[in-house]
């Protein structure tokens, strides 16, 4: 369950608190209240600068709300200590718009990271990661570093990293932006499968044809406000 109670994010206030003026340039969020049930699926839409990425940042705990409060996976992050928030993050898979892969690690090691943080056995990690990368068509790219992969390949690695730990919540920021239609459909099927297995999935996307094709409830933002949920 994800619940927002009049949650807002004022970047200027946050920049003052964190003494990082760069944050002040981003679009904030104003008074968001909504609930997404466990195992739900949502498209997150809105024009560029509407606050989609910021909303996802609140959900993957990269930023705290500056007003109101949120509940993620039945926990209130504000009441958790740092270690508790770290453990909560492990239950959230994120596909970043800019992939955020570690350039000094291979595709295999990038995907294996969440499993290694969770102290899984190496034999299990090897089996799961190899299988997943094979499934997205990267069986012959396991040892390649991100800089040796195309944009689409990097995106697939990023998606594999987000889903390899079978997260309770999957957040994706324009996950199909660098993929061709066939790959995009294939990955959406992967997200749907995870959703059917109980993972809550929220995908921020501009791709209206994809949203039309896979109908699901939509969260629409405009200038940091939620203007439609349904």
């Amino acid at each position: 369950m994800i619940r927002f109670f009049n949650a807002g994010l004022d970047y200027q206030r946050l920049a003052g608190e964190r003494r990082s003026p760069g944050d002040a340039d981003h679009t904030g969020l104003i008074d968001l209240s909504f609930t997404i049930e466990s195992g739900g699926f949502r498209w997150l839409t809105g024009a560029s600068g509407a606050g989609k990425t910021t909303l996802l940042k609140l959900m993957y705990l990269a930023l705290p709300p500056t007003s109101g409060r949120i509940e993620l996976l039945d926990s209130d992050p504000a009441r958790l200590d740092r270690a508790g928030r770290a453990l909560l993050r492990r239950r959230i898979g994120v596909v970043y718009q800019d992939f955020r892969l570690l350039n000094h690690l291979s595709a295999f090691d990038n995907v294996a990271l969440p499993l290694r943080l969770a102290r899984r056995k190496e034999t299990q990690i090897h089996a799961d990661v190899t299988e997943l990368l094979r499934w997205v068509g990267l069986a012959d790219r396991l040892a390649h570093r991100p800089e040796e992969l195309s944009g689409g390949e990097q995106q697939r690695v990023a998606i594999c990293r987000a889903v390899v730990g079978r997260p309770s919540l999957l957040l994706a920021d324009e996950p199909t932006g660098n993929l061709d239609d066939e790959q995009a459909v294939r990955l959406l099927h992967l997200f749907m499968s995870l959703n059917q297995l109980g993972t809550t999935v929220i995908i921020a996307s501009h791709n209206l044809s994809l949203i039309e094709r896979y109908r699901a409830p939509v969260l629409e933002l405009q200038h940091g406000r939620l203007v439609y949920h349904g």
Partner: peptide
Amino acid sequence: IIHGLGAR
């Protein structure tokens, strides 16, 4: 990135 993936 590692922090975001849940590293304590």
